[in-house]
Amino acid sequence: MSKDQDGRNDENVLVGFCKGEGKEYLRAIECLDKNCRPKVVSWLLKHQMDKRQAKEIYEEALTDAYVNLCILKKPLTTSLCGYIFSISRNKWRKEMGSKGIPVEPPPEPPVNPMDEGIIPPEIIKACRGRLSQRCRDILDDADRGLSMEEIAKKYGYSDDRSAKQTKYRCWADFVNCVKEQLSKEI
């Protein structure tokens, strides 16, 4: 297959991937799982990762690629698989670093905007996991842009004021958890 054809296929896969649903999305996921996943996983397996870790890193990289390219609309300067591979490699470096294993060559500049924020995603994930299911649902809905009236109605609050109070109480718990984790890291 020529480079042009490869490029067009890659573009089609990216377009389908970013649809987020429907036939084209399924085809894109199928295509990435068939063509990209084996490359990434086999590379990770050759670099001290076990099967479960390699699979998890690929899943996270695929998810990050979706958020970066399709939601945050970051430009793609390489092939889609190359991009996923690059995110996977950074995650692998982080994993190796956490085990105290030196990695050569030195880390590349981060390509994943989610790794660039000042709050490490692991802390956010852990603290989100500590919230009650109801708190998570309410914060998620508020984050999606639902109004307080809609949230009050959805969760059976008498008025939007009660819903708002719950939301800010949940949010305060979350922020305190993150702060606590950050202070431990320092």
């Binding site: 649903e21 199928e30 998810t63 958020v67 399709c70 924020g117 984050d143 999606r144």
Partner: peptide, 29 residues
């Protein structure tokens, strides 16, 4: 700090939704 936490929360929510979407797609495939 709070803005960054808010942004981090949003990212994590998006990630969770994206991952769920991918899992659903895989099940359908």
């Amino acid at each position: 700090l709070r803005r960054a936490i808010r942004e981090g929360y949003r990212m994590e929510r998006l990630r969770m939704e994206a991952r769920e979407g991918i899992n659903v797609a895989r099940r359908q495939v």
